[in-house]
Amino acid sequence: MAPYGTVSNEMIGILLLALAGFLIGGVYATWKSVKLMAIVLGLAALVAAGAAVAWFVG
Rank of each mutant, 00 (worst) to 15 (best):
M1W: 05
A2G: 07
A2E: 05
Y4T: 08
Y4G: 01
T6D: 09
T6F: 12
T6E: 13
V7N: 05
V7Q: 15
V7C: 14
S8K: 08
N9Q: 09
N9G: 07
N9C: 05
E10L: 08
M11H: 09
M11W: 04
I12D: 00
I14W: 09
L17D: 15
L17E: 15
L17P: 00
L17K: 14
L17V: 00
A18W: 05
A18I: 01
L19Q: 14
L19T: 04
A20V: 00
A20F: 02
G21W: 06
G21E: 10
G21S: 07
F22Y: 09
L23G: 06
G25I: 02
G25A: 10
G26S: 03
G26K: 06
G26M: 04
V27G: 07
Y28Q: 03
Y28P: 00
A29N: 11
A29P: 00
A29Q: 12
T30D: 11
T30E: 06
K32F: 13
S33Y: 12
V34I: 05
V34A: 14
V34W: 10
K35V: 04
L36T: 04
L36E: 06
L36R: 02
L36Y: 01
L36A: 05
M37C: 06
M37R: 10
I39W: 12
I39E: 03
V40M: 13
L41M: 15
L43Y: 03
L43H: 00
A44P: 03
A45P: 08
A45F: 14
A45E: 11
A45Y: 11
A45Q: 08
L46M: 09
L46I: 12
V47E: 01
A48V: 00
A49I: 03
G50V: 04
G50P: 04
A51Y: 01
A52M: 07
V53H: 04
V53P: 01
A54I: 13
A54M: 13
W55F: 12
W55L: 03
F56N: 02
F56W: 11
F56T: 03
V57W: 14
V57N: 10
G58M: 13
G58N: 11
G58D: 03
